[in-house]
Design a protein around this nucleic acid. Structure first.
Lengths: 196, 196
DNA sequence: GGAAAGAAATAAGGTAGTTTAAGAACGTAT
DNA sequence: ATACGTTCTTAAACTACCTTATTTCTTTCC
């Protein structure tokens, strides 16, 4: 289980800002590489949410568990994505979400106070995360719109079109919990499609 | 219909960053003040989404209209909030959302290219909007979680508790469209509550 | 390679939320 | 004050989606 190299995360950053060698070194020095086996957790509900995570390889899933034990998948993160329980990360609170590796994954972790330090030492990163969070906001807003205005089948179609890599790697139970329906109902939707 | 003064928006900015006089002047120079009468639009679906808007006073509502004509309220914005169709603003596309003044409102508008100019002239604003978008992302993520895991009645209770000022100013039809239910069903929920 | 566990399909009965329609209450303009 | 449009309420019939249960298919692992 070897540790990931920071090449991919640096490319991710370079897509929006240009750091010099010193800044790059500083940034990398705060990253904690970690390899997570399939089905293991990088965060559990109730534990302090310490990290924001960059996915170097693999697939992670963040989900909420309600009082009755039902899971709602909040997001899937594949290679080149950032994932955390933002609310609890920012406020350094016990997490509402559990984050699990859907398959063996390598990630880089960044701690809240290290992130604050980085903002001061490398102010360009304000721009970088401004863009990251701006995009994240847009994604969530689109998801809210779709949740309010579309049927389960329409949401499923959009999911298939938008996240084909994810579809191959996760179970239908997990897709159903992302769409806000039961696995049985998703199975029915798929059955109906096959007949057409 | 007098134009708003930028005192409130400067306070809003000062909550997260400190600008000197020159920076403040530069920032203010890009703001377009506007007063919108009740029931008028600052943006219509299909028109290029030019502006991000700060609410100086009043209440605005952003909504999506589907093919069947049904409206879904994406957000309400009261005094001291920012509102736009983020996806279309960022990509400078025709808007998906319509933004309407629920009551007479005064706003400040900031154009996309002016915002980009500001990021270069006053880099601190990267930090400011990083925090604004971070918070916006958190809000939308919480809304997704609630949409997936809670019943209509539970979502209504949370709305009442979280946005009491909004509740007083908008119709139940609008609240229902924010919650993702019909006004008739919301009326029934309220009826049931009254009996308890 | 076979047993056990987990994932998906199918189907019957149930419920949360919708649709349609009609009447009551409210606001606002003449 | 009266009238008109809009918002809110109520209720009955309907539908999208859920629950529970059974069967089949797939994966995992000793």
């Amino acid at each position: 289980m070897n540790k990931p190299l920071p090449d991919l995360i640096l490319k991710n950053v370079a897509r929006h800002i240009t750091m010099n060698q010193e800044e790059t070194a500083c940034f990398v020095s705060f990253l904690k590489p970690l390899t997570v086996p399939k089905k293991e957790f990088i965060q559990k509900e109730g534990q302090l949410c310490r990290y924001i995570n960059f996915v170097h390889s693999g697939t992670l899933r963040a989900y909420y568990t309600d009082k009755t034990g039902r899971e709602s998948t909040i997001m899937f993160a594949v290679t080149d994505w950032w994932i955390t329980d933002m609310f609890c990360f920012i406020n350094q609170q016990p997490a509402m979400l559990t984050i699990e590796a859907v398959e063996e994954s390598s990630i880089f972790q960044l701690q809240k106070n290290d992130m604050e330090t980085l903002y001061l030492k490398v102010p360009k990163l304000e721009r970088f995360f401004r863009i990251i969070f701006q995009n994240a906001y847009v994604r969530e807003q689109l998801r809210v719109i779709q949740g309010l205005s579309l049927s389960a089948e329409e949401r499923y179609d959009i999911f298939l079109a938008k996240y084909p890599q994810v579809v191959r790697q996760v179970t239908q139970k997990q897709i159903a919990s992302y769409l806000g329906i039961t696995p049985e109902f998703l199975s029915m939707i798929r059955g109906n499609k096959r007949k057409k």
